[in-house]
Each structure stands twice: as C-alpha cells, then as structure tokens.
Design a protein around this nucleic acid. Sequence first.
DNA 1: CTAGGGTTAG
Length: 720
Amino acid sequence: MLTLRLMRLERGDDNQLPPLVVVESPQVAVEQISHSTHRSIETLVVVLAVITIVVVIAGFIARLCGGRHYGGNGEVEGWIESRCRSCIDAGASSAPPPPPPTPPVAAKAASTPKEEDITCLGLEFFQTRSNNIKIQAEDLEEEEEEHRVASLIGKCPNMRVLRQIHSYILTRSLPSSTLSFSLSKITCFCALSPLGNILYAQRVLFHTPNPNIFSWNSLIGGFSQSHTSQSFPIFKTLISRGHPNPNTYTLAFVLKSCSISPAVQEGFQVHSRVIRSGFTSSSFVQSSLVNFYAKCEDIKSARKVFDEMPDRSVIAWSVMIGGYAKLDLFNEALGLFSDMQKAGVVPDEVTMASVVSACAGLGALDVGKWVHSYIKKRKIVIDVKLSTALINMYAKCGCIEKAKEVFDEMPFKDSRAWSSMIVGFAIHGLAEDALSVFASMEESKVKPNHIAFLGVLQACAHGQLVREGQRHWASLHESGIQSSIEHYSCMVDLFCRANLLQEAYAFIQNMPVDPDPVIWRTFLVACKKNKNMEKGELVGQRLLKLEPFNPENYALLSSFYAACSQWSKMGHLRKQMRDKGFKTVPGCSSIEVDGIVHEFVLGDWSHPESKEIKEVLTDVLRRVESLGHKANVSGVLHDVGDEVKEEALCEHSERFAIAYGMLKTKAPVVIRVVKNLRVCADCHEVTKIISRVYEREIVVRDRVRFHSFVGGACSCKDIW
DNA sequence: CTAGGGTTAG
C-alpha cells in the first residue's frame, strides 16, 4: 500500500524517480539522483528493492510508534499519506486550502527506537539517540540535524530531490522544533528558489504545525515574484488570529506584490498595518512603500513617504527618481537626481538607468552626454540595463552613432538591448540598419521579443519596404509572439506610407482586433495625402463617433477637408469645434541648449528671448519668400485654428525652436516636435529651405521619427 | 527570507 503511494508521489514529476532514495539517507539520495541516467534497465531491480525496503520501513515506523501516538499501522500510513499527498496535490489548486487539522507531530515523545531497528536502517542519528545521552547533547544533535537538513536543501538541484528530502524529513521522528525548522526550509526553497514550486510551498506551509514567520514570509515572497495576486490573501490569513506577527520582511514582500499588480486598495491596507505595527522606521518598508505608491502612479503619496524618511538609502532615491521617470515627469526625475547628489548619496547603476531614461524622455542630449561621462568617471557598472537605457537615450536624442557605439561595446546583449537598437534605427529612418541588426539578433540566437518586431515593422514602414515588412509580419506569427494592436498599427502605417490605401483598408478590415483611433488616424493621414475623399470622410466620421471629445480628430479631419478643398465642410467642422469649446491642440516644439530644454508652444511668446527669436523668424520669412516660395506652400490649414494663413508659417512652434537653435548654437539644430500627427508638408518644405539658405543641419524629431535636413534635402523617404 | 533600473505603434 505504501509502495503505491510512493509511486503516486512520483507522478508529480516528469521523469521517473528512483524510489529507493525515499527511505535512504539523504546523502545517498542526492548521489543516486545524480547518477540515475541509465535507469531503464535497473528499474525492475529498483522497484523490487523499494518494495522490500518500504515494507521494512513501514514495519519499523509501526513498531517505533508502538501504537502510542498513532494507534496501529493504518494510522501511521494515514499520517504519511496525508503529508505525501500534500506533495502530490501541490499545483492542483491555486486557491489557498483551508487550514488543515494539525497533523500529528512527530514529537520528541516518540519512543526511543530499539537497537535492531537502528541496525536495520543504519542511521547513526538513532544510534546516538538510543544511548541515553544528556539533554545538552541532544540539543546539539537537533542543531546538527537542522544544519544537515539546511545544507541538504541548500544543495538541492530540483524539485524532485526536494520531494525526497521532504519525504525523508516526514518519515523521521523529529522534535517539533526541528520539524518546524526543516519544513520552513522546504517552504523557503519551494517558494523562493527559481527551481522551486510555489504551490508546493503553499501546501507545505498549510501542513506545517505552527509555521514560523520565516515560512510565511517565504510563501508571500514567492507569490510576490510570480502569482502576485495570491500574496495579499496569504497575508490576510497571516494577520488573522493565531499566527505569528508579520515583520519587516513580510511587509516588504507583500508591498512588492501590491506594487507589481498593482493593487491599490490592498497596498493601502498594508500601509495602515505598517503604521499600526510600528514598522514605519524600517528603511526596507519605507522604500517598499515609496515604490508601491510610485507604481500605483500616486506620485504625491510616494513623495510624501519619501520626504518623511529620515535616512534615504540609494534604493529609496532610485525608487523615487524611477517613479518620476516612469510617469514622464522627467524634469522632476533629473531635479531629484541633483538633490541626491547634494545629499551626498552615491548613485549606482540602477539610479543611473532611471536618470538616463529621463534624459531620453526629455530629448536632452547635452544632459544625457554629461550623465554618461559621469557614469564613466564614477566607475559605475554599465550593465545590460544601463546600456539599453543609454542606447535608447542616444537614439531618442538624435545621436544614433553614439547609440550604436554603446551597443557595439556591450559584451552581452539581451532581447531588450537588441530591441532598443532596432527601434533606434527605425526612428531614424535607417531601415537597412534596423533590418541588419534584427538579422544579427537572430544569428546570435537571441529570440526577438514583441518590441524587436515592432522595431522592424516600424523600420519597414519608414523605409517604405512593403515586401520586407510583410515578410517580417509573417515571421512574427511564426515566432509564436502574440501580435498586438501596436503591430497592426505598424502594418497599417507600412501600407499608408507606401500610398497603398486599398491594401491598408483591407488589412484594417481583416484585423482580428478592433482598430483603435490611432489606426484610423494613420489611415486618415494617408487619405489626406492622397486626397481620397470617399474613404477619408468615412473614416473621419467613424473617428468622431469613436472619440467624440478628442480635439485631435477634429483638427485632423478639418485639415483633411482642407486638403481636399472641401472648404464648407471644413468650416462646418471648425464651427462644431467652437461650439463644443474645443481648441486645437497647440503644437509644441522643444530644443535643448546648454543642458536646458526650451519649450515653445504655438502663440506663446513668453520666452525671455522672444524678441530675438522674432527677428530671426522675420528674416526666415523674408528669405523664404525671396526664393519665390509662398508662405503657405499648400494652402492647407494645419493645427493653427483660424489664424491667417500667412501668419501660420512663422507661428508654427517648430520655427520657434529652429530659430532659437540657429541663434544659440553653431552645432546641428536638433528639435523635437509634438503636434497633430506628423510634421506637416508645409513645415517640411520650409525646414528644407531654411536648411539650404542658412546652410544649417536641422534635425526634426516628430512623434514618429527623425528627419535630418542637410543642404535642403531630407533623409525622409515619405512623399510630402 | 526584505526595497530599486532598460526597449513599446500613428
């Protein structure tokens, strides 16, 4: 009967288990496992051996217990079964099982084994025990036994061996404290080791009599790494009656899981528990709280906890800086980094990854370069993550060469690093480079992730490589990666930029997911460019239904009507916008000069040097017109509302930024534009002229990509 | 047994 159960125990594993080791000494167990590769021939011998030994063992245990604690043989088996079942059933259910009846404890009270039993087992442990050694010595033995179990688990190579160690522990008559200690070690391994099994850990914990806080922490910590939503219910069970009190480890773990989910309400409850239990002064708990609030996007609360910290570790600073950066509060992130330096806290590579990422978000190349040299000077370790952040920063700041440099210097590249480089090339319109990096990635046997594919598709769209894009689209599906709306969007853009409106529309209609507003706007821009009234009007109306309160849609549709010379329809739309109280989203452009990012918004002349800027703009206007170009090249109204068209030329925010750049620096003028979709055709034409007439290199980063203007030509392959 | 970081469509 027992043999049968032990075989069931094996079923949880993929491979066959040499059952001998279940009852052998643990050292032998480990050795046997590691040498059991040629099992098939030996299986029969092994099975026979186990039956023999199991029968002997069962008899031994029965006699050992002598009916004192567990009644007869049947009860002993039942006890072992209940414990072994806990191993078998692990993984069967995800919900925490009801606390089981406390299993009979193999307590110290277990009767002293007789000499013949000991000989039969050959275990020294029992031998020493039977020699009536004094209590002091017995304590030492327990320590020794605990040490033995701990070291065994420390070396445990997989779950199968762990199950055997578990079985070994359960078949021993251990004092309750030793048992509890051993089971907590088992729980810890199962919950926290990458080789473990969290559900097994859960079963073990619920079958441990009076589990200690170490066990609970392991379980909560384990869940916080994977099944985050499970952490909090376990925590709730823990804080109910009759369990040990949570400590700082518990709180750190449970807060971590609340921040990953993120589970706002649960996190609040934990915070109140932190206050009530008086762990507010723990730096671990504090940082966890800051992180929790930051991840829940409650940056004010995060900052409040952060400000109340008396001693802020490098981790607390990193969490706060990273929190700002994640929420696009880049200036705050950089400001806090400066405060950190003032406070004399030495940043590490984790801090710097967030700082670099903030520079990327701002498009602040000067600051980014400074930060990079700071990292080198301070000898901060540049690991994969920091390198990836640097690649991204240089790429987003228009310095693709530096990005490539950092990339080439990396000794090891993971899928994110490759993706970052691919996307970098893609936004620079360097489709061939992006594709070749993607090819090298595949050669290096690094599996492309969804963003790597996004990058290649983006590159193909920007480079108008329709065939290539379709090929990668197919391989995306072959790779087993779930294609997202972003991927579909890239495909639509691929067709749109190549002016393949029919293909684009058919593609949208055949999508298994509902097209989102971004996709419709992409398509509408293509309709505008191709003056396709029929489809454009249809899609435009659809957009207004889908997002009736997004001014961007109105601005785009009205400019579409203007492009199609449908002035009355355009006027009607403008009226609608006025009636609804919409203002067109003002364009916003920025440029970094001497480490400061200057932002220019349409119609805003509050910049301290606006007078000088105006003078440059007048000169630009004069030069452009003297070359025989009309101020409004295509007569299209963009996002300038009802402004007079002639004024529109110089009122576009990118002109502010370009003018300021020409005024302040001799270097290439790198500006960023955030406006209604792509840089409009007018702006593009005018920028070309400026670049030629003033002999300046101008780099314009719109929300999609970079356009490099040199000598009046743009690197962009789009047809304007 | 405890806290932090990088890439994302128009």
